[in-house]
């Protein structure tokens, strides 16, 4: 049995998992940030396979365009540590690896045995840009406004936290 998307799905998931492993295991934090961009791009590809084109565009714009650039800025502002030889992982990495591998294997095994999902009979709408726009103005009006206030608060908070103290 092949997943939806076939070979494209396999390529994207291999890219996601390998780059994700690079993000958590490389020593140079700048290379980690670059691999994070690769990983986020591939997740956008997965969204396209799942008929969520608007979400894929938002992922590329917000994550790749804004968050990843922000992280790279932070890496550059804070470091000399891009070159520095310091220990990047703590000493309990082996234990953490065993625990996380156990979590991953356990949840995948559980998923492969789970059959309780009631699959939808209708197909997902292909016109998801206008559908999302409609939702934002009707059913999700309040969360939409609240999230704009949250963004404003985050903006002001970041400025207040990160500015230099007055002499």
């Amino acid at each position: 049995m092949m997943p939806d998307g076939g070979i494209v799905f396999w390529i994207l998931s291999v890219v996601i998992l390998v780059s994700g492993l690079m993000v958590v295991s490389l020593r140079n934090i700048f290379h980690c940030a670059l691999f994070l961009i690769v990983c986020l791009f591939s997740v956008a590809g997965i969204f396209v396979l799942l008929n969520a084109e608007f979400l894929a565009a938002a992922q590329v714009l917000i994550y790749v365009g804004a968050v990843a650039i922000l992280i790279i800025f932070a890496v550059m502002l804070t470091s000399n540590l891009a070159s520095e030889r310091i220990r990047m992982t703590s000493e309990n990495a082996a234990v953490a690896f065993v625990a996380c591998a156990f979590f991953a294997i356990g949840s995948v095994a559980l998923l492969s045995k789970t059959t309780v999902w009631k699959y939808s009979t209708v197909a997902l709408t292909t016109d998801n840009v206008s559908a999302i726009g409609k939702y934002l103005m009707t059913q999700f009006m309040l969360p939409f406004e609240v999230v704009s206030v949250l963004l404003l608060a985050a903006l002001i908070g970041a400025i207040v936290i990160a500015r230099k103290e007055r002499p």
Partner: peptide, 28 residues
Amino acid sequence: MFYYLALAAILFAIGMFGVITRRNTIGI
């Protein structure tokens, strides 16, 4: 559907591993 959920579970485990083991705030 199983493959997508399995991919998400493994990615989550990778992220969890990073959060636990990183000694660097940006890495976390």
